[in-house]
């Protein structure tokens, strides 16, 4: 990350002729080639998802057909109706939503507080805390599952939504990301607020956080993706059906030895539709947030 504050102010260059295609002139060969490559690439990336979505409307026999059909020839909702009959979709959707929203809010709050201290204060143990945080990004959850469960269980948080929300909230990636962003904030702004007599927490809340909006947005997106798709941890902690999230419920459904693949596919497709909708609605902000240099 280059310290962007030290960059000289950019000279606003007059529009160059590089973007010939948008300025009404005939697009160059290069531009056509580039657009073609990008579109073909995008089709390749999206195709498996579309195909899976279409396949969930195929009958079991058609799914097994050789060669495969591209789209369902006899369209059936059976996979959805039988799949969903055995499946309390609204409840799992609600649980997933509660966990995702609550965990994301908590993550944003505690991660940004920690990141602020690590970025803008000088205190004993700061570098050590940062180093530990960084190393923790490298610990895979799978390998410390049982010790974590022990802690959660001794706090009495198993089998509750709290046990799904709190333990994963202190994401090291979030602290890292926000700290890097806050390093680029001008100290002068904070100093000025201090001179105005604002309290430390108020400065954080009213001055620093609004300035960090792009980085917070990026972390929020990732937190939503992580928590929505979390599987391993909820599987162990959410024991009653009443607290299970969608991925867990799907795994339980698919884990029955006599369930056909067509139904598993249908339920899986249903589970990714909410995130995809949210993503498509927010994609403009997500992409621009990411690209605006929040991730550095």
């Amino acid at each position: 990350m280059t310290a962007r504050l030290e960059e000289p102010p950019r000279v606003v260059a007059p529009p160059t002729t590089r973007w010939a295609s948008t300025s009404g002139k005939t697009p160059s060969v290069g531009a056509i080639a580039r657009t073609t490559v990008l579109i073909v690439g995008a089709i390749i990336v999206v195709a498996p998802l579309v195909w899976a979505g279409l396949s969930s409307f195929k009958s079991q026999a058609e799914l097994a057909a050789q060669p495969p059909t591209l789209y369902p020839h006899d369209f059936t909702f059976d996979n959805y109706t039988t799949g969903l009959a055995a499946f309390d979709f609204p409840r799992y959707l609600l649980n997933s939503t509660i966990v995702t929203v609550a965990a994301t809010l908590l993550t944003l709050l505690i991660n940004s507080m920690a990141a602020y201290a690590l970025a803008k204060y000088n205190f004993r143990g700061r570098d050590l805390l940062f180093l530990i945080t960084l190393s923790a990004i490298m610990i895979p959850l799978q390998v410390i599952l049982l010790p974590i469960y022990q802690v959660v269980s001794s706090l009495g948080m198993t089998n509750s939504l709290l046990g799904l929300i709190i333990p994963p909230a202190a994401t090291p990636t979030g602290v890292f990301l926000l700290r890097q962003y806050m390093l680029t904030l001008p100290d002068e702004t904070i100093e000025a607020a201090r001179i105005d007599g604002a309290g430390e927490f108020r400065i954080f809340w009213q001055v620093v956080l609004p300035l960090c909006r792009p980085a917070l947005a990026v972390l929020a997106i990732f937190s939503v993706i992580w928590r929505w798709n979390d599987f391993l941890w909820p599987l162990i902690v959410a024991q009653d059906e009443s607290v299970q999230t969608l991925p867990v419920a799907i795994a339980r459904f698919a884990g029955q030895q006599a369930i056909p693949f067509s139904q598993i596919l249908a339920v899986s497709v249903m589970s990714i539709i909410p995130v995809i909708i949210v993503f498509l609605i927010l994609q403009r902000h997500i992409i621009s947030g990411l690209v605006k240099g929040a991730v550095k």
Partner: peptide, 23 residues
């Protein structure tokens, strides 16, 4: 009686976790 259903593939892990966690 609270009936809790787990996928068969995860039974072992689930029980093991609960044994270590005393639940």
């Amino acid at each position: 009686v609270e009936l809790q259903v787990v996928p068969y593939a995860e039974l072992q892990r689930s029980l093991q976790a609960r044994i270590t966690g005393d639940t």
